[in-house]
């Protein structure tokens, strides 16, 4: 199981006193470093230190990013990417949890499906796009499928190993008290697997945007990935960096939202 969170989480738990002051205090040099790097970027672009025609100054990127707010293709592209990513993520995670629990509980299903899943799992996502174009076309169906496929695997593998790791005493206790299988599933198995499921969901969250964007690059007619490739051909680096900036902001917000939700719904995680 892989639980890869942010660096901030762990470091923050220890320091409760003067948190705000301490947060900035430790990071002061880091924030300065970012400012220095950004000014170097700006200067190098303005003074022509970098030998590339496609190295726009930071201010030009920010101007492009703000300009798109007033109305442009970029935010539409972002919205359609996010819509597909969200649908794919939800479908992939639900299927991942359901199959993970089913295969974790049933030996027959495990024998029947696990080898097939294990064969498909190592294929890098971009490679399945060309054959899928033949069956699903290049529209929403393809991209939603790709995103759900990519988010399925981490959720599934974590769920199945979570189910396998459940303390047998829990199940036996439920059986002793003659609790039905449905209630055992909902009240015993699910809560006990939840930390593992969450770990899978976290990996899936970070993958969805990556995969949604790459699917749009390979087979695209809309969305952020398509937009980026179009701007590459149009030689508009300022718009490309602005697009990356928006994607990074969205990625950051998703990660933050995940941490907040996780702390709310699985408060016992990481406290064992």
């Amino acid at each position: 199981m892989s639980t890869i969170g942010t660096i901030g989480e762990i470091s923050r738990t220890g320091a409760r006193t003067n948190r705000a002051a301490q947060l900035i205090g430790v990071r002061l040099y880091g924030l300065l470093l970012i400012l220095v790097l950004l000014s170097l970027w700006e200067l190098s672009a303005r003074l022509g230190w970098v030998v590339s025609a496609y190295w726009p100054p930071v201010t030009a990127i920010l101007r492009a990013a703000v300009g798109e707010l007033a109305g442009g293709d970029m935010l539409d592209a972002l919205a359609s990417t996010l819509r597909r990513a969200a649908i794919g993520y939800i479908v992939g995670s639900v299927v991942g949890v359901v199959l993970g629990i089913l295969l974790g509980k049933s030996r027959v299903l495990r024998l029947a499906l696990l080898p097939l899943i294990e064969i498909i799992r190592p294929i890098p996502t971009p490679a399945v796009i060309p054959p899928l174009i033949l069956f699903l076309g290049v529209d929403d169906a393809l991209k939603i499928f790709i995103v759900s496929l990519a988010s399925f695997f981490p959720v599934f593998t974590n769920t199945i190993s979570g189910v396998a790791a459940i303390d047998d005493t829990l199940i036996q206790t439920a059986r002793t008290f003659r609790i039905g299988w449905l209630r055992t599933l909902v009240s015993v198995v699910l809560p006990a697997t939840l930390p593992a499921v969450t770990a899978g969901l976290r990996t899936a969250t970070s993958l969805t945007l990556v995969v949604a964007v790459l699917a749009e690059m390979i087979a695209g007619s809309s969305g952020m990935g398509y937009y980026l490739v179009q701007m590459q051909y149009a030689l508009r680096p300022d718009l490309m960096y602005a697009a990356v900036l928006y994607l990074a902001i969205v990625g950051y917000c998703l990660n933050r939202a995940f941490i907040v939700l996780e702390a709310r719904f699985v408060p016992w995680i990481g406290k064992t």
Partner: peptide, 25 residues
């Protein structure tokens, strides 16, 4: 303290989005 903010800035970028950007640059 020096590197954490920088890491947290670059990390959330979906890396696939950087491919065309770096190709151009």
């Amino acid at each position: 303290g020096l590197l954490e903010p920088l890491t947290e800035c670059i990390r959330p970028i979906p890396k696939s989005a950087l491919v065309p950007v770096l190709f151009l640059f």
